[in-house]
């Protein structure tokens, strides 16, 4: 009994914090906007009983989802978000892997300190850290002042308000999520495996590709998902660092919700975003599952 109760806790948690909110959003996505409180119709009236419920159901339709297919804005925004998230993930991997590798190779007494340094930025508000990038990247910012100062450039670079700044912001913000799982995988790596690979004819580089990379695969995959998933729906970073041409679904969703006050369409956008995210999440779960089985 106690055991069953224990298992029920995470399921209740999922039910309360994921499934029920999702059903509410799904329900709104099937409704129509209306100038009222709340700004959509129909709303469920329990006093009407069963008839009221069927009446309520009959008023729901997929009109908003059809609408999403009619305007190229939406699929372009999804595509652009996917592209930005994918490229950011790749960049985070390229930056994060060497850091994780260096950490795992560092002397054991240094590792806790290095780990601390990776986690340390989380102690400061995310917003403040993104804001500080405005100060670094703006035309009058530290980066341009530095580059002008050492004479690398003669005209300030326009980085802020471009996609480049968005990539920098996303990579910076989510880098620890990339580093930590890769570090965890690399730290477990037995040095004698690399020696064995060299002994069997690998150069240092091929030993890295044939042994280190495959053995840190689980960490790489986990890191990529942990960066990709939040980056896909990212709103704050593109709106602070990005330019007006930075098209991301998070921004489109914000505009549907706040500017157009069209909660049903905003909900439909969110439902589709969730469906897009579910694919990688399911893949991620299966990878984890396989990993656990492999480790037996």
């Amino acid at each position: 009994m106690g055991r069953r109760l224990l298992i029920a806790v995470p399921y209740l948690w999922l039910l309360a914090l994921f499934l029920i909110p999702f059903l509410i959003v799904l329900k709104i996505s099937l409704s129509d906007p209306e100038l009222a409180i709340p700004p959509y119709t129909p709303t469920l009236d329990w006093r009407e009983g069963w008839a009221g419920f069927t009446e309520f159901l009959s008023q729901l339709d997929f009109e908003n989802f059809v609408f999403l297919t009619e305007d190229d804005l939406y699929w372009k925004a999804y595509l652009s978000s996917l592209q930005i998230a994918a490229l950011s993930t790749l960049l985070a991997l390229l930056v994060g892997y060497p850091i994780a590798y260096a950490m795992a190779r560092a002397a054991p007494e240094w590792r806790p300190t290095l780990l601390m340094l990776v986690i340390l930025p989380f102690w400061t508000s995310f917003l403040i850290r993104v804001y500080s990038w405005i100060g670094i990247l703006s035309t009058e910012g530290y980066l341009n002042q530095f580059l002008l100062g050492i004479g690398v450039i003669s005209e300030p670079l326009t980085i802020l308000n471009t996609n480049v700044a968005v990539y920098i912001g996303i990579v910076y913000t989510y880098l620890p999520f990339m580093i930590l799982p890769i570090y965890a995988a690399l730290e477990k790596l037995d040095d004698s495996l690399l020696e064995a690979a060299e002994d069997l004819g690998c150069s240092r580089l091929s030993a890295f590709w044939l042994v280190t990379v495959p053995l840190s695969k689980a960490g790489i995959i986990a890191g990529c998902f942990l960066v990709f998933i939040p980056a896909l729906g990212e709103f704050v970073i593109p709106s602070l660092l990005g330019g007006s041409e930075t098209l991301m679904i998070g921004k489109v969703l914000w505009e549907e919700f706040f500017s157009n006050r069209d909660w049903p369409v905003a909900s439909a956008v969110a439902v589709v975003l969730l469906l897009i995210l579910i694919v990688p999440i399911v893949l991620f779960q299966r990878n984890e599952q396989r990993q656990r089985e492999a480790e037996g």
Binding site: D190, S192, L193, E195, A196, A197, E198, D199, L200, G201, C202, S203, V211, P214, L215, K217
Partner: peptide, 20 residues
């Protein structure tokens, strides 16, 4: 001569089998 170029092979104490 680096280890990968030597006509010498080693069997490691931990066996160092590639788990993947």
């Amino acid at each position: 001569i680096p280890p990968n170029k030597r006509a010498v092979n080693m069997m490691f104490q931990s066996y160092a089998l590639f788990p993947h």
